[in-house]
């Protein structure tokens, strides 16, 4: 650009000052001094980017419509009140009941159990990696965590069913439990979520400026105090985002619960009971032979819609929380 400008008429500062009237620029006045070269490539790139952005929106809306249409058909046949607050879920039986609470109860159990495992261990791993670990240790730990995140969930499901439930719970601990339990599913789901929470929280904590840690150390704080009182609050919005992502993954996780939690839809009252989650139901029933447009078919979408709304609410709450606790540094 600088080289180019030399070929243009040079504007003399004295003229601008106004002492000799308006600046006299040499050359024909109808040629802009600022005309650039045309950049057709830029338009194409912009078009591609806009298309990509539009596509995600269109797909999301499409999924939503695909969920809502059969969902609404379902609620024409089943009162929404009976669906939300009914305690018996037997859509495939002759005397069908469509109370979704049993599915919701199993989802709550597995999600809460998963978070009880994932939050402390995930955050602990994050604090260790960002505040304590020698760079060499960190270089080993982070890839291991990422491998953990890359294990297919079906493997986790198998692990929960065959090892945790059968070997650990029944053989070693002699617990009074059947072939399935929400505890085994929740526990393993928690292990699965640890890397998500650890990795995102660690990013948030590492982003806290070193100067804050130095300031804290210079006031006589030890590492733990610096981590807990300065770094953690400063990274809190990122940490909350990590936890919410973990919650969303737990609520939406399908394979582990479909394999290890069981397939009987009933209100779960204890961690050693079996139960069917919302996702577990969809996975099981979608493999069946329900006719398109039938009530059983629409039932799938009603549950899917509920799942979608729950996730949406969790996301909205998280945005609120993040804004509330945000500490800008």
């Amino acid at each position: 650009m600088n080289k180019k400008s030399a070929t243009f008429p040079v504007l003399v500062i004295d003229d601008v000052a106004g002492s000799k009237g308006p600046a006299q620029l040499p050359g024909p006045s109808n040629i802009s001094h600022f005309a650039g070269r045309p950049r057709p490539g830029e338009k194409i790139i912009k078009g591609v980017l806009a298309f990509s952005a539009a596509l995600t929106v269109v797909i999301t809306v499409g999924i939503l419509i695909a969920l809502i249409v059969p969902g609404v058909e379902f609620f024409v046949n089943v009162p929404i009140w009976d669906f939300l607050f009914g305690t018996r879920w037997t859509p495939m039986f002759a005397d069908a009941d469509y109370g979704v609470l049993p599915l919701v109860s199993a989802t709550i159990w597995t999600t809460v159990l998963a978070l009880i495992i994932a939050i402390p261990f995930g955050l602990g791993a994050a604090v260790l990696m960002s505040e304590y670990a020698h760079p060499k240790l960190r270089a080993v730990l982070k890839p291991i965590l990422e491998v953990l995140a890359g294990i297919p969930t079906v493997v986790y499901g198998l692990f929960a069913l065959q090892f945790i439930q059968l070997v650990v719970f029944k053989e070693w601990l002699q617990l009074d439990t059947g072939a399935f339990s929400v505890l085994a599913a929740g526990l393993v789901m928690g292990i699965m979520i640890i890397p998500t929470i650890a990795s995102i929280s660690e990013d948030a904590m590492s982003a806290v400026p070193m100067s804050l840690r130095q300031g804290s150390a210079a006031l006589g704080a030890n590492r733990m105090q610096t981590s807990v009182r300065v770094v953690f609050p400063a990274a809190l919005s990122g940490i909350i985002a990590a936890i919410i992502l973990g919650v969303s993954r737990a609520v939406g996780e399908t394979m582990i619960v479909a394999i290890a939690a069981g397939s009987q839809a009933r209100i779960v009252t204890g961690p050693l009971e079996a139960g069917q989650t919302m996702t577990g139901f969809i996975a099981n029933a979608a493999l069946g032979d329900s006719r398109v447009g039938s009530l059983e078919y629409n039932t799938l979408f009603a549950v899917g819609l509920l799942l979608f709304i729950i996730t949406l609410i969790i996301n909205m709450i998280s945005i609120r929380l993040v804004n509330k606790f945000r500490q800008v540094y």
């Binding site: 100067s211 300031g215 006031l219 300065v230 609050p233 540094y329």
Partner: peptide, 19 residues
């Protein structure tokens, strides 16, 4: 830590905590 408590430090760039 005790050394830093007795010998404090002010840094080049102001670094208040986000509190």
């Amino acid at each position: 830590i005790e050394v830093r408590r007795r010998i404090g430090m002010v840094f080049q760039k102001p670094n208040p905590f986000p509190k």
